[in-house]
Design a protein around this nucleic acid. Sequence first.
DNA 1: CGCCTTGTTCATTATATTTTGAACAATCTG
DNA 2: CAGATTGTTCAAAATATAATGAACAAGGCG
Lengths: 160, 160
Amino acid sequence: MKPALSELEKEVVDIFVRIAGVLSLPRSVGELYGILFISPEPMCIDDLMLKLKISKGSTSQGLKILRSFGAVNPVYVAGDRRDFYAAEAELRKIVAGFVNEQVRPHLDNGKARMARIEGLIDAEETGRKEFIAERIERLQGWQKRAGALLPFALNFIKPE
Amino acid sequence: MKPALSELEKEVVDIFVRIAGVLSLPRSVGELYGILFISPEPMCIDDLMLKLKISKGSTSQGLKILRSFGAVNPVYVAGDRRDFYAAEAELRKIVAGFVNEQVRPHLDNGKARMARIEGLIDAEETGRKEFIAERIERLQGWQKRAGALLPFALNFIKPE
DNA sequence: CGCCTTGTTCATTATATTTTGAACAATCTG
DNA sequence: CAGATTGTTCAAAATATAATGAACAAGGCG
């Protein structure tokens, strides 16, 4: 295990750093998943912080996040007391985990808010009221459609 | 036009502030779209900064971003030299604009990077090589599928 | 039990992002 | 054209987010 990242490793890590950005996850989370994804052997915290030159704290927190939606799996290594991890490579599993952990809560919250808003329409002055009711209705339509797209998109990912 | 946000306005603005967050857009962009979305009349910069209590700079920049992907349309108001805007309310248009402006460039970039990576595989030591080739192949599969999902998702949004 | 090894937590520090506001440019108006 | 009015830009300030590392907790092991 070389102490520095190879050209290929850098490229792969960079891909996942960008993905992390899109998903509003810390850069270090992308780095961790990236290096595990391209590593044939499972790695422990020491390996990871050495390879990526990040602190132990970041490594620990990053792995916690990755574990939270199943992007990383613990691997038992005989004769070593440390925790080793390997990247989960089945996209479906990762996406499902991510959606459940990080997306659903927001969607649920959104529904609650929409209910609250409905009650506020009546208080509007007439004239505005008609327009506003139309807009809220439209917003609900968007929300419903987003909710419908989600399971479909999940299904779009074939098992391998 | 009241100087402060009503309860309903606050709720609606808050929804779009959250959406802006998910899309990695500044909070002020969400505020601007939100207040325009729920406003029966088109608004100018002065209206917006007064209503939202944000600076002229933020307002100008925020509107620029919203214009860039067609989330907001200029509206001519007779006898007023200022620029007025109304929210584009057709979801399909906004999403299409956003994808073209903010998503496509990244996808294209991704393809280029993947090509570069392919060339790096051969340099790997045997043993690692087999595993790494499998991973890169998998990554390409993901990329291809994401590219396929996009047009489908766009089509999922019915015109109204 | 006393000493390692390992992983986690969290206050502090560092970094990245957003907002502000004043200077500027552009355009209208009399 | 001179003076307003309006919108944009961008350096500096404010804010939000992530990384660091030392203190701590939890287990193992002799």
